[in-house]
């Protein structure tokens, strides 16, 4: 598998996949996609990289700590749920900023933050699976 073309291809693919996964994440609210699918695509990119270069190099190069991703993902989701409390709303209530609409990303709101949490967690989970099992 160590052919240079493939290696080059994968190196190029990783950022592409990451961007695509982010795209899936943010469009999820209005079209098929979302944090879960985005996270999966994200992790597929690094899985490919791992298949080619091994776990150690992947971890070193991209400073990926799956466990941290999991923890941050969860924390992010919880925080997105806590934010509405300061606005006097219930836990996890979706708060939206109505005036601003960012292109591609849509309106910023806590559900988006929540979805990012999902994204991080799924990415972390799948990567941890791949890392753990690949090293075996």
């Amino acid at each position: 598998m160590n052919s240079t073309i493939l290696s080059m291809g994968i190196k190029l693919l990783v950022p592409l996949f990451v961007i695509f996964s982010l795209f899936l994440l943010f469009r999820g609210h209005n079209a098929p996609g979302g944090g879960f699918v985005g996270g999966l695509v994200f992790s597929i990119a690094f899985s490919l990289y791992t298949l080619n270069y091994g776990v150690k190099r992947t971890k070193e190069k991209y400073k990926i700590r799956p466990l941290k991703l999991i923890a941050w993902g969860l924390l992010m989701a919880v925080l997105s749920g806590l934010i509405p409390l300061f606005a006097g709303e219930s836990f996890l209530t979706g708060l939206w900023h109505d005036e601003i609409t960012i292109p591609v990303l849509g309106k910023p709101g806590t559900p988006i933050l929540f979805d990012i949490g999902v994204y991080l967690l799924v990415a972390g989970t799948i990567l941890s699976l791949i890392f753990t099992l690949w090293e075996e």
Binding site: P84, E89, S90, F91, L92, T93, G94
Partner: peptide
């Protein structure tokens, strides 16, 4: 008696 939290409002 009974407390209800409607999650996500």
């Amino acid at each position: 008696e009974v407390i209800v939290l409607q999650s996500a409002g």
